[in-house]
Simulated scan of single mutants.
Amino acid sequence: MMTNLFSIFDPSSIFFTSLNWLSTFLGILMIPTMYWLMPSRYHIFWNNILSILHKEFKVLMPLGSSGSTFIFISSFSMILFNNFMGLFPYIFTSTSHLTLTLSLALPLWLCFMLFGWINNTQHMFAHLVPQGTPSILMPFMVCIETISNVIRPGTLAVRLTANMIAGHLLLTLLGNTGSSMSLILLNVLIITQIALLILESAVAIIQSYVFAVLSTLYSSEVN
């Protein structure tokens, strides 16, 4: 029995770390041995997804940097596996914690900023003032653009975390009311829970895709 509503997101630390965080690596179990040894249907299906993502990310990035798409495809795969693992009962959802999402977003953003300001300083300064801005508004636009740039890793991390928490909380709230319902309402509740589970599966895919696409767009601005 839960002590409070948010206890489903509690990593319940033991000593220095918690075994719950090992759920982050459960996605590896979804890659069977056959994937590495010989082409299977799973292999072909996953390769098709990766090639589609590679082509899409390559369009968003400048010419000559198409190989950089693999880091975004890897982050997409990791977030996708963890989002789906969290939908199973009694598996800790690591992507519902800022500890993981900020650990992904912040280093990526810092690398983009360091690379941009060191190698393309004038280009980065030009990004602070949009084209066609009146001279009077330029100082304000620099402040606004700087703030919007600084909060990017936070928005990436919070967006993913909030979406994961919201769906899980809704499922938990509805699930806890089932014991006090009549048979007819219980059937309605089960149908609602199934619909929400399908929605959560869609959100798991969409949020991992959004994270990867926005990271790609941020990287394209530094070249």
Rank of each mutant, 00 (worst) to 15 (best):
S148Y: 13
V59C: 14
I118N: 15
G64D: 07
P153W: 04
T133C: 07
N82F: 04
S75H: 11
F125E: 10
A162Q: 10
L110E: 10
M78K: 09
Y90E: 14
L102D: 09
P134W: 14
T69P: 06
H43G: 09
W117D: 13
H127G: 12
A157T: 05
L80Y: 06
S77Y: 11
T133W: 01
E56A: 06
G167M: 09
G154V: 02
I79N: 00
S135P: 02
R41P: 08
F57H: 00
I71R: 00
L98I: 06
T101P: 06
M141A: 12
I118R: 07
T69A: 05
W46E: 07
R152T: 13
M78P: 12
T146K: 13
Q122G: 10
L102E: 10
V158S: 11
N83Q: 07
S96I: 12
A162H: 05
G167C: 08
I147P: 02
S65A: 11
A157P: 05
L50N: 05
I144N: 12
I165C: 00
F140P: 15
G64S: 04
L156V: 01
N47Q: 11
F115P: 00
H97S: 07
N47M: 08
L137M: 10
F125H: 08
L98H: 01
Y42Q: 15
K55G: 12
S75I: 09
T155R: 07
S75N: 12
F76T: 08
Q122R: 10
W109Q: 03
L100A: 05
L102H: 05
I118E: 15
R152K: 14
E145V: 04
M141K: 00
F81S: 08
F140N: 11
L106H: 05
S66W: 04
F57T: 09
T95N: 05
P107V: 04
F84S: 02
H127T: 15
V158F: 07
F88S: 14
N149A: 11
K58H: 07
L110A: 05
T121M: 12
T155Q: 05
S66I: 08
S68L: 06
L60M: 08
V150L: 05
I118L: 14
I71A: 06
R41V: 13
F140A: 10
M78G: 11
F92Y: 03
S65P: 13
F81H: 04
I52M: 07
P130M: 09
L108W: 02
L114H: 13
P39F: 03
H54T: 03
I151C: 07
L114V: 05
T155Y: 01
N48G: 10
G116N: 02
I49W: 02
I71L: 06
S148P: 12
I136R: 04
S103V: 10
M78R: 02
